[in-house]
């Protein structure tokens, strides 16, 4: 595949995984948790490096997943002890993130880890960092990992689709039916963490928040069906990735920045023109009623 092909494929995988996970983040009103986890995975990555002395993507995936679970657990615990939800998110993620920054700056600062890279990502380098995969041949490591993460996301969401729907819509009923609501909360947050860290190389930790939240928020404006919302969200993620890439080429700027910006543009269009909830249709409706 061509250089451009790999970049577009990688970014599309980010868009699809984030788009699917993002729908449930939005509906569970946990958009802020995406922001929190996108920061604390830094601590997970640094710790994984300190423990294994390896920069392998899989070690980092595990480290980040653990960091995500720890974040979720601490937020939940502080909240149950009487700290407000948003305050406990704010306290936990800034503290863990700061710890990550301190560790990076002292121990591994001279190694290949740097904050700039982790937060902003550099998708342009992805096609050169390859590995040999049976049957598939030489493919970029980041692309391979993202492919596995996508399969994982689709499997976990698909197998327990009705449980995800019910625990999101009505956790009390779910619990009364015997569905382990809290366990599913942790599993979901693990999915968010894994998606986030897998997207690190591609778009960076900060930009993945845009990919998680904005396409899902846009999709929410277009449909009243959950499955359609998931499909649209993934679609918007992919479209943003492509528009962002070509826009970045055109004016020669940051690719991940352009991709995140493109999600915002799609949201703006949805906000203005969606037939059900858009500003324009809301503005036109009373007029139509009068005539």
């Amino acid at each position: 595949m061509t250089y451009t092909g790999w970049i577009l494929l990688t970014a599309s995988l980010v868009g699809i995984s984030s788009g699917i996970v993002g729908v449930f983040l939005i509906l569970r009103r946990m958009a802020m948790m995406a922001d929190a986890i996108s920061h604390t995975v830094l601590l997970g990555i640094v710790t994984a490096y300190l423990v294994t002395k390896s920069l392998s993507g899989f070690h980092m995936l595990v480290g980040a997943a653990i960091a995500g679970i720890v974040t979720t657990f601490l937020v939940q615990w502080l909240h149950s002890k009487g700290v407000q939800q948003d305050a406990s998110i704010g306290v936990v993620f800034t503290t863990l993130f700061a710890l990550g920054v301190i560790l990076i700056a002292t121990k591994v600062g001279n190694a290949h880890l740097d904050v700039q890279h982790a937060l902003m990502g550099e998708i342009a380098f992805i096609p050169w960092n390859t590995m040999e995969v049976p049957f598939l041949g030489k493919i970029p490591i980041a692309t391979f990992i993202l492919g596995i993460v996508l399969i994982l996301v689709v499997t976990v969401i698909g197998l327990f689709y009705k449980e995800w729907k019910l625990t999101t819509f009505d956790p009390a009923l779910a619990a009364s039916l015997g569905i382990p609501v809290l366990a599913m909360h942790y599993i979901f947050m693990t999915l968010v963490s894994i998606t986030t860290v897998a997207s690190f190389d591609a778009v960076g930790a900060i930009m993945v928040v845009a990919m998680l939240i904005t396409p899902a928020a846009s999709a929410y404006l277009w449909t009243d069906k959950l499955l359609v919302m998931i499909g649209l969200s993934a679609f918007f993620g992919v479209v943003s990735a492509w528009i962002g890439y070509y826009f970045a080429l055109w004016i020669d700027t940051s690719i991940s920045g352009s991709m995140a910006f493109a999600t915002g543009v799609i949201f703006l269009i949805s906000f203005l023109f969606s037939p059900k909830h858009g500003m324009l249709s809301n503005w036109l409706k009373p007029q139509a009623g009068k005539s």
């Binding site: 509906l27 009103r29 999101t168 819509f169 009505d170 009243d224 069906k225 959950l226 359609v228």
Partner: peptide
Amino acid sequence: PQRGSVDWDFPT
């Protein structure tokens, strides 16, 4: 449950 306990804007 109480009617107010869920989000009625949920896409369903």
